[in-house]
């Protein structure tokens, strides 16, 4: 009796889960299908999954267009730089927070936390002013510097929490064995923090890769635009190139998808191990 009930609830649960999965996956699948069609066929009625326009033609159009390729290059440069800088600066800041006592430690910590709480739109105008004053408008650095403000707090908080779970005797041990604190950090603490670093790195990459608002405002010329802006540029007054948008979206989602699949194992364990203390 009990067993049958269990079985029934399992079946019900599965049905609900499948419905949710379909609901979540539908836009992605639709995007994928549309990206293989020609623009004129997308709104054909009745809708067909595969029609005579089905093929790689749009992808070829995207990948042979230097303007579109430039969007991808820009996104890769900015995102990679943000990930590298966030991790380097964040790791060192987190080490200081975890291992040292310094004046105003609490105050600095609260500032870092509160930066995250300010809506980004409020920061747009001040940053615009700063970036223009620094003569960085319409450069990679304009995006990299503003993205660091978004990604560093999370990185510092996560890594401080993670380092706090690692015994200080590890540092002591390295220093006695003949190394410096620098060596202890990069030679021991960082290698054993891989799960946390992967999850922080992924989050950072996604933030930089997907960012739209600042990228729109802080760059001006087409050759400095990133993918999210590039996709949006396809919407013009006279022409919505849906199939082009869809194939660019697919190509734009691909890196994140690949990273997730590749680091899945680390990502999940990083989320949970950082949660123990912090």
């Amino acid at each position: 009796m009990v067993r049958r009930q269990n079985k029934l609830s399992k079946v019900l649960l599965s049905i609900v889960m499948i419905l949710f999965a379909i609901y979540a996956a539908f836009p992605i699948v639709w995007m994928l299908i549309c990206s293989f069609k020609q623009n004129d066929y997308i709104f054909a009625w009745p809708p067909k999954i595969i029609d005579e326009s089905f093929g790689l033609r749009t992808y070829v159009r995207v990948l042979t267009d230097p303007v579109k390729l430039r969007f991808f290059l820009n996104s890769y440069i900015v995102s990679a730089a943000v990930v590298v800088l966030t991790l380097i600066i964040g790791i060192m800041a987190a080490y200081a927070f975890s291992r040292f006592d310094f004046p105003l430690k609490k105050a600095v910590n609260s500032i870092i936390v509160s930066v995250q709480a300010i809506p980004q739109i409020c920061l747009l105008i001040p940053y615009m002013g700063i970036i223009v004053a620094l003569q960085l408008f319409n450069t990679y650095w304009a995006l990299i510097l503003t993205y660091l403000v978004m990604t560093l707090p999370y990185c510092i908080l996560m890594m401080t929490g993670y380092f706090n779970t690692l015994s200080k005797e590890l540092d002591d041990s390295v220093r006695i064995d003949g190394g410096s604190r620098f060596r202890a950090l990069w030679g021991v603490l960082v290698p054993i923090s891989t799960p946390a670093l992967v999850s922080v790195g992924l989050y950072t990459f996604m933030t930089a890769w997907n960012e739209y608002l600042f990228a729109l405002v802080l760059t001006q010329t087409t050759n400095m635009r990133t993918i999210p802006i590039g996709i949006n540029l396809l919407i013009t007054e006279h022409n919505y190139d849906w199939s082009m948008m869809m194939s660019m979206s697919v190509l734009g989602s691909l890196p994140i998808l690949i990273l997730f699949l590749f680091f899945q194992k680390y990502f999940i364990s990083g989320m949970s191990s950082g949660a123990i203390k912090g």
């Binding site: 015994s167 005797e169 002591d172």
Partner: peptide, 12 residues
């Protein structure tokens, strides 16, 4: 040289 209570071995 020093031996610590929790060993402090380098896990990696």
């Amino acid at each position: 040289a020093m031996v610590f209570q929790n060993y402090a071995l380098y896990p990696h």
